[in-house]
Design a binder for these strands. Sequence first.
DNA 1: CCCGCAATTGTTAACGTTCACAACTATTTG
DNA 2: CAAATAGTTGTGAACGTTAACAATTGCGGG
Lengths: 334, 334
Amino acid sequence: MSKGSKPTIRDVAMAADVSLTTVSYVLSGRHGGTTRISQPTQDRVLAAVKELGYVPNQAARGMRRGKTDVVAVAIGNLDWPWDRALATAAADILPQHGYQPVILLGDDWRKFMMSGGADGVIIGYFPEAKSEDETVTELARRGVAQVVISGTMKPAGFDVLAPETDSGLADCMEFLTTSHRRVACIRRADPAGRPKSRFAAYAAGLEKAGIPLDASLVRTSHHRPATAYQSALELLQLPDRPTAILCTDDMEALQTIRAAYRLGLRVPEDIQIVGVGNSTEGQDYDPALTTVGPDPIFEQVVRMLLDRLTGTTPAEGIRVASPWKLHRRGTTEG
Amino acid sequence: MSKGSKPTIRDVAMAADVSLTTVSYVLSGRHGGTTRISQPTQDRVLAAVKELGYVPNQAARGMRRGKTDVVAVAIGNLDWPWDRALATAAADILPQHGYQPVILLGDDWRKFMMSGGADGVIIGYFPEAKSEDETVTELARRGVAQVVISGTMKPAGFDVLAPETDSGLADCMEFLTTSHRRVACIRRADPAGRPKSRFAAYAAGLEKAGIPLDASLVRTSHHRPATAYQSALELLQLPDRPTAILCTDDMEALQTIRAAYRLGLRVPEDIQIVGVGNSTEGQDYDPALTTVGPDPIFEQVVRMLLDRLTGTTPAEGIRVASPWKLHRRGTTEG
DNA sequence: CCCGCAATTGTTAACGTTCACAACTATTTG
DNA sequence: CAAATAGTTGTGAACGTTAACAATTGCGGG
């Protein structure tokens, strides 16, 4: 117990003058049936534990038990409301079930999971729309619990929550094109992947309504909120201003509202704005943001993982569709 | 290697027909001096590794080596720009130095670190302003690398980055009170801690300028952005409207700008707004947000931890003051 | 008075790695 | 030609914990 060393179960055992096993039993509380520890002994052990400030080493425990009690949450970027909401939900719920949530950014989850860092992982982020992923496949083979948010992947030893973006966006575009002819779009600069398909839905919606795609009405934002704001300013100062703007992410939509106010335009009277994602941020805005998205699904995703961890889910995996719909709110009233 | 089992170093050894040690040496690359592995053997091992998709188990490795190569980043809430920026900086920098960053929310870091989950931790969050913390002290005794962001704690086996909020806020209040008499405040609802001291600085600044504290000009926001927005609307619709508003967090300040625009007020002509934190969000705004805060320090914090991990820092720990100053930008021009 | 059972606690091997050291094979040198 | 040496690879213990199983004690009944 000198400086720089952490107390082990061995130290506790010596302090309480019992064997390692006894300490282990007392702490894990699994001295139920045939193995009982007498009250005096328990007290002595607990006293020693407190005295030394002993906490079992998770790595060692995990190794022996074959499980880590850790769940990873893989997200892309803390600036995205969607990812944040997922991480927050996981951090709220998982501890209640004895799991330690850890949030991993970017691609860190691959190494982390492959090296046995956690019992399960919620993957909320794929830079590209893909139908399968080598790491996911391998982890599934190894029996790691996984829930993947993806519209394009099929369950195969893991679970998939599939947001039905296309139908939602189609509804949205239909709604917009019935009352607008000049519908602009602020899209993400992501190479391929989600945003692309969102933009594709925009284009498809225009075509369906017989409106030619006007390239000058399409702007690309480059991940930072300020660029979306700039794009919005440009669009709104166009000689023939669009009457509605579809932003492929709520965050960008909020920037657009701000740009409108800045220019003295009223929302929704002068310009109507629609986002994508149905984030709480948009709900809380004034006027509340009309948006295309799922009902909040993050709790659901976390529970899907918990079910899989407890073995409730069929081994081959399930696919839960998350319907996306248009939430008509303040920015498109009237 | 059947379904549900992960390949171990043993499997690789058998496949390559060598001993465990050889595999370990090849992989860890530490076959430098007296222990060399011949090229053919290396090739065979690497082939087997690839074939089996073997990745060393981090827990086992960590146990043996006495280090985990993991660094935890403890933050309070993903909704706070400050916390996000810290986590993002850590996630960017740490992997370049061989460390796996994991983000922990709320109080999770206590259990996690006490059970040996990581070699080091960056603590960016304390719900209360305290001069010492039992967990931190104990971790320091155990030789865990720690950097704590705190204005009130003193280094004692760990490092402290101390934001000089008071002097910064004092400057700010002086600046505001020279041209304004009615300065409102939107503060956080946190019980004690950071926000409290920020509010205290507001009160002190008023007193110094001989302006009585007007309770009707103080509003409390309850963590969600929408409440700050509401508070701002109320303040701005007061019969005798304040001419400046100090928000104890940039996020709230941005909401306040939005509220002003909503009411048709111009910023900074009609209302001047100051935030706290110097977040990038505020910088990107239009008009850019005047704010009290440090120059970006998150990279610095991460490097402080790396220094400590490599033993560069003196054992007793260092205290780095992070001067806070007023960044005069668009919302207070003119 | 001995046996068996219940109530407690201890022994030991194992989880997957790493590392100091031992051991083996060819070379080369005296 | 023996022995030292360099170049390779293997052995075994250890990290901290758990769990199947063994061992010890005390008690009552046959």
